[in-house]
Amino acid sequence: MKRQDMRSPLGRVIGLGSAKDGVGHWWLQRLTAVALVPLTIWFVASIIAHTASDYERFIAWLSTPLTTTFMTLLLIAMFYHTALGLQVVIEDYVHSAAKIPLLVAMRLGCSALAVAGIMANLRIAFVR
């Protein structure tokens, strides 16, 4: 006996249905969300605490190993979460030929921004 396929014959022919990565997207969206709860609260609280700080004091805070570690984790989790979220928004609303180029540009942009942010932070930590 052949294994039962739950898809309709039409769905099978045009290749719609499970591509076996839906759970991966869903799970990583939740995983990054759980990571972002403490990381963003830490970040917002730190920024509030530095409202009155001048450049030197602010850089001193950014240079500590704890801040650099948390900022790196924040940037990775934040831009991963952003990429997964914007992917769904583009897939839901863009149905023209621009869809795939937009998805590629968004993904690459998120990666570039995360790396740029991490580089800026490492420069503050190790060069300044």
């Binding site: 450049y55 602010f58 952003t82 740029a116 942010g117």
Partner: peptide, 16 residues
């Protein structure tokens, strides 16, 4: 918040 994230990176680069 995606736009805010971009501003955050600009702000970090400015600080660096």
């Amino acid at each position: 918040l995606s736009a805010v994230a971009v501003v955050l990176v600009i702000w970090l680069i400015a600080a660096a």
